[in-house]
């Protein structure tokens, strides 16, 4: 099937099998940050943005992205590095496998909810599983990152 879409603002046209999963398609196009962590739509590792909204690329049918924009971590290098530094400062990662999907969703949270409460943060991120940690390091990193971004914005 013909498909035409933008991956990180780059126009791509291709011919794909009708059941090509979005996740494998994105990996084929070089977006290796997009990974599969489960078979049941449960882990959030495969998170990408479709028209700016975080979705599961293991689940969302690829053909629904026709004529639309997909963003992956590769398209958000600057923001990802900035938040990544907060994760590192809090010693949040252990194996780091869960990071790409987690970062995509934290950056979506930042755009979606202006001044999130602790509860908002936990709820928004509850679909990102981490097998190594107890999430407290990540939670501290998110809080500090968002506070930092707010203060930068206030200074502007």
């Amino acid at each position: 099937m013909e498909i035409k879409l933008w991956i990180n603002d780059k126009l791509i046209t291709d011919n794909v099998e009708p059941d090509m999963p979005m996740l494998e398609f994105l990996r084929d196009k070089g977006c290796l940050s997009v990974k599969r962590g489960c078979e049941t739509s449960n882990c959030g590792l495969c998170t990408v943005w479709l028209e700016g909204k975080p979705v599961l690329s293991c689940t969302m049918p690829l053909m629904r992205a026709n004529k639309k924009h997909i963003t992956t971590l590769e398209g958000l290098r600057k923001e990802a590095a900035e938040f990544g530094a907060f994760l590192a400062d809090e010693g949040a990662d252990q194996c780091g496998y869960c990071n790409p999907g987690f970062i995509m969703n934290v950056l979506a949270l930042e755009r979606d909810i202006e001044d999130p409460t602790d509860e908002d943060i936990k709820e928004y991120l509850s679909g990102n599983l981490c097998r190594c940690t107890g999430y407290t390091g990540q939670f501290r990193a998110v809080k500090k990152y968002l506070a930092h971004k707010r203060s930068v914005k206030a200074d502007e």
Binding site: S41, P54, L56, T59, M60, N105, S126, N128
Partner: peptide
């Protein structure tokens, strides 16, 4: 499940 799931 989570935000991304409910967006899907």
């Amino acid at each position: 499940v989570g935000t991304q799931f409910r967006n899907t």
